[in-house]
Design a protein around this nucleic acid. Sequence first.
DNA 1: CCAATCCTGTTATGATATAACATATCACGG
DNA 2: CCGTGATATGTTATATCATAACAGGATTGG
Lengths: 164, 164
Amino acid sequence: MLSDTNGSQPKGFMSHDHSGCVSAALAAADKACADRKVQFTAVRRRTLEILLEAHAALGAYDVLARLDADGFGAKPPVAYRALSFLVDQGFVHRIERLNAFVACAHPDTVHNPAFMICRACGTVAEAQASDGGLGPSAETSGFQIEQTVIEAEGLCPLCQDGTT
Amino acid sequence: MLSDTNGSQPKGFMSHDHSGCVSAALAAADKACADRKVQFTAVRRRTLEILLEAHAALGAYDVLARLDADGFGAKPPVAYRALSFLVDQGFVHRIERLNAFVACAHPDTVHNPAFMICRACGTVAEAQASDGGLGPSAETSGFQIEQTVIEAEGLCPLCQDGTT
DNA sequence: CCAATCCTGTTATGATATAACATATCACGG
DNA sequence: CCGTGATATGTTATATCATAACAGGATTGG
């Protein structure tokens, strides 16, 4: 199960002061939605906030439990729809490997995200991606790449000690 | 469903003579298992054969249905165990994006696979991967990469015409 | 040929995700 | 300010993907 509720998780893999970054990210999302004329409704805003606070990848049902606790609906579509909106807007990324969602670390810039997933502690760090070396193969075969998922699994610096 | 004993399914995205490649791959797996002293049992062999014949990514339950039809067990663990063995041995890859499995296109060489997935026809082509450009980020942060999933989604050459 | 190990198949359940529908809210032109 | 079409919410129900735990059977190696 993916869950993590405390308020000071590593970012990248370095600990950092996390106090202001939730509200900053929310404000940025507010602005982006206004610009794009899409509705940043209460569930959506709260869903993003949940992911920002967790500062970790959460499963849809983890998010759902929190939304439920806050008085939003308790049924899966409530969470999936909000998450899907946030992913579409680029505020959140889906981690295929974990069937989980994580708040975007660089919501303001267009980017092709890649992730490093610690198999011991579950922390997910976002990095800038390349095309995964697929460019040449794609060109040779005529495949038209629209999106590339890049997810590395391994051990984060903090887990390289005792952990197997 | 053994519909594809004919000789022209796409490989990569180019059609190719596919007639001998199933038995060749099975023979290679036979040998590899003998070398490694692991049991290449009937379910496992048939599971690999199913994926080779399909020459496409199949879900675990698709594989299971075929195994069932062949008189092997009909319950999920039967398929998941065989698939998990084949993945461990490197004969099959899991496509995270599709929750599906595909026979390895280069079973004899150690490789870091990457995939191109056509969103129109579902065909999956295997290519050689890089680390997805994560090397620098990983080094900076001290993350120790063990494995990288690289899956590109887009349109294969055959689907770039009328298809949405 | 016995025992340890590995493999198979089962029951049962858990975890993830979406379809389809009814109601509510919003955005905006009239 | 009100109607109307588009959008969002919440529900029921169900689909899809995956594994834990156990009993019995096959293999292998002494």
